[in-house]
Nucleic acid binder design. Sequence first.
DNA 1: TCAAAAATAGGAGATATCTCATATTAAAGT
DNA 2: ACTTTAATATGAGATATCTCCTATTTTTGA
Lengths: 223, 223
Amino acid sequence: MKICTNEERQSYLDAYPIAHLFAFPIEEFIEVHEYKRDEWMIREGMRPDYLFYVIEGKAKIYVTHQNGKVSLINFINAYDYIGEMELLNEVYYTKGIRTSTKTVCYAFPFHLCREKMLEDVNFLRELTKFLSAKATKMAAKYSQSLAFPLENRLADFILQTADEEVYKEKHVTVCDFLGVSYRHLLHVLGQFCEKGYLKKDGRRYCIQQYDSLKELAGKLRNQ
Amino acid sequence: MKICTNEERQSYLDAYPIAHLFAFPIEEFIEVHEYKRDEWMIREGMRPDYLFYVIEGKAKIYVTHQNGKVSLINFINAYDYIGEMELLNEVYYTKGIRTSTKTVCYAFPFHLCREKMLEDVNFLRELTKFLSAKATKMAAKYSQSLAFPLENRLADFILQTADEEVYKEKHVTVCDFLGVSYRHLLHVLGQFCEKGYLKKDGRRYCIQQYDSLKELAGKLRNQ
DNA sequence: TCAAAAATAGGAGATATCTCATATTAAAGT
DNA sequence: ACTTTAATATGAGATATCTCCTATTTTTGA
């Protein structure tokens, strides 16, 4: 991790203005942190000292269970917050955050900003929207995971992450995210190929029948 | 549903003061709604016109999937909000809310209160805490549901809902909540009895080995 | 550049969980 | 009080998913 200073810091601040989200002058408190790919921004169980606002890059939220299973709880993208739970709650089990690409964040030190932020109507309104989206998404994922087999959830995931016709997520990541074993994921991908929905091309999968996948994924939604 | 007026309304307002949560005079806008047991407060898919704040009673949040399965997403208790998603988001699939006991709510009409609430730093701070707790809980349930078999989640649920040594939740409710079939729930309850963790007593179950259940439930937690 | 680690791949058998069918009992409505 | 509906109970067979094992390929790091 690298903390940007001077011109570098300023150029991020210019490229991603954020003052409008706050009623008080926030810029002076902002640190700009640059994380490399595959770096732990926050270690599981260790409370962070900052509220982060992602301006570039991608990361993942992980939690490790006592039985050794790892859940990838969600993906984090630009304009997401990290550490807002710790900002709001004294007691909270901190999840691990790991970058999956180079990631740049604004980091607001709690000890300087917490009070002000919790008095700031602009920021709080922004945060409620972020949190309501998060809660909604989690509730949807939760109920879907219990109500549908992998087939449907995987079809949805493929459509959401495919780049044009090409699906190429790492299996290991997808297992953690969808909460199934590697073996079973491969099994269902194999079925999709057999049925002609996908075609395997080396390590990639090419979507052959959009509509079939859409139908499977569509069953998840009323929402 | 009944809307309380005059003395009745006032006596609720006196018994459950709420002005301190708002920076503006809220009382004049409050309607007091009384719902009977097993009444639908909000029908799935129908946007409500109010933000509700529960002051007495219990309710459940339901969503129906396209495959006919019903998920009981969460329980609602006194001091919870209902309709906060619709307050914040223009686009949102409204879940069904059904009371399980007589329930009394403060109802704030959106058309009169939305603007003011979204400008109110006290209320927003309160709401962020509520939402962060909700998001956290959902994330925990989600990852647990994928990482652990029913055995562990049921043990946890029994300990959370048992009244002294007596567990007596309706099976049908529990199925919807834990996302398993009736048949399987009974199967695992049967195992608990065989192992001596529970003893069946008519329609109730009596906890015989707290520690065994605690051990099973404890595996869910690092959190 | 080479060894170690991570990711992919698939077989085989176990188990968690589901579906369907059928009875019985309790609760609710008129 | 009686009919209808909801809840409980259980068997049997199907399927979704897991665990463990082993082999190959790719990526990573010193």
